[in-house]
């Protein structure tokens, strides 16, 4: 399929570049992924996904990123512990100092703005462009697994990483909080107090919501990734979208637009901290994420299934 299209290539600027030895060396564990048995079965799909996940979670830069994300809640916990000693600081500081579980929400609200999107964009933006850039994409497509299937595997991989990023932040914050701050009934934003078990449940809801939001960003990054062979381009493009959205959100004149922007929706996880849980706003948020996933996913598919694979 790919060779046939290479012959009928019409796009100027896409010059077939002979693969360099360096490019092959960059990804030593590639052969297993490429060596999927030529049988169109669901087991092949899961094997491909498994190998992708293995690559993602073994890649040093991803591990470093996860480590940094896990470190931030620890730093925040220590800082808040020190600050809380002299009290008289309102808001989230007081609630974190008063209850260990609140550190999770504080960390999520702090990291969801920029650092978590960076981590997700790094993986999802690299998905197609990275393979194309290192010249391994055509080997992946040599197996008759089909482009749609490859795209699905790449996206699922990014989704798993999105939830992993969220879970790492939440777990690290939870552990830090449990060590540094008293455990007890959680005071919600509405001033109501719920038992610890329900607090944990609400953390779980928040993690699910933020994870879905990150998965929506992963779809955007994946779509950008199909348009370029330079993965940093896709990653940077995704971050530009995130930052521009943040700017638009801060301008009051674009108030009506804010509901449709991803960053504005990510912070909606605080609906889980209200009493009763703000299901309306959170459902709207999930719908927005779904819309982003459907739109970006279909763009990625349209682009990738017709793309000339030249490297």
């Amino acid at each position: 399929m790919s060779t046939a299209e290479t012959r009928t290539r019409t796009t100027p600027g896409l010059v077939p570049v002979p693969e360099t030895s360096r490019a092959t060396e960059r990804r030593p564990p590639e052969p297993p992924a490429g060596a999927v048995p030529p049988r169109r079965s669901s087991s092949a799909f899961w094997r491909l996904l498994g190998s992708e996940l293995g690559l993602t979670f073994r890649r040093p830069r991803n591990l470093v990123m996860l480590g940094v994300l896990a470190g931030v809640p620890v730093v925040m916990g220590v800082a808040l512990r020190l600050v809380a000693a002299d009290a008289e600081l309102g808001g989230i500081v007081t609630s974190v100092a008063g209850n260990s579980l609140m550190l999770t929400f504080a960390s999520l609200s702090f990291l969801v703005v920029l650092l978590m999107p960076v981590a997700v964009a790094m993986v999802a933006g690299d998905a197609i462009a990275g393979e194309a850039g290192t010249g391994t994409l055509r080997y992946l497509l040599a197996a008759p697994a089909g482009r749609t299937r490859l795209l699905a595997v790449k996206y699922l991989n990014a989704v798993v990483f999105s939830f992993a990023v969220t879970a790492v932040v939440a777990l690290s914050a939870l552990v830090t909080g449990l060590i540094m701050f008293p455990v007890g009934p959680v005071t919600l934003l509405s001033g109501t107090t719920v038992p610890v078990a329900e607090g944990l449940l609400r953390i779980l809801i928040s993690v699910g919501y933020v994870g879905a939001g990150m998965a929506a960003l992963a779809a955007v990054a994946l779509a950008l990734s199909t348009f370029t062979e330079v993965s940093i381009g896709a990653v940077a493009g995704t971050m530009v979208i995130v930052i521009v959205s943040q700017v638009l959100r801060a301008i009051p004149q674009f108030d009506g637009l804010a509901d449709y922007l991803l960053p504005a929706r990510w912070t909606g996880f605080d609906g889980a901290l209200r009493s009763p849980i703000d299901t309306g706003a959170m459902a709207e948020g999930l719908l927005t994420f779904g819309a982003y996933i459907v739109l970006s996913g279909s763009v990625a598919w349209a682009r990738f299934s017709g793309k000339d694979i030249t490297s």
Binding site: A291, L295, S298, W301, A302, S305, G306
Partner: peptide, 20 residues
């Protein structure tokens, strides 16, 4: 190939239309 391109890009356009 051309025709295929149109059909393919019809999918995201349809998705955008539905969301809109």
């Amino acid at each position: 190939m051309r025709k295929g391109t149109f059909v393919r890009w019809g999918v995201p356009i349809a998705a955008a239309a539905v969301i809109g």
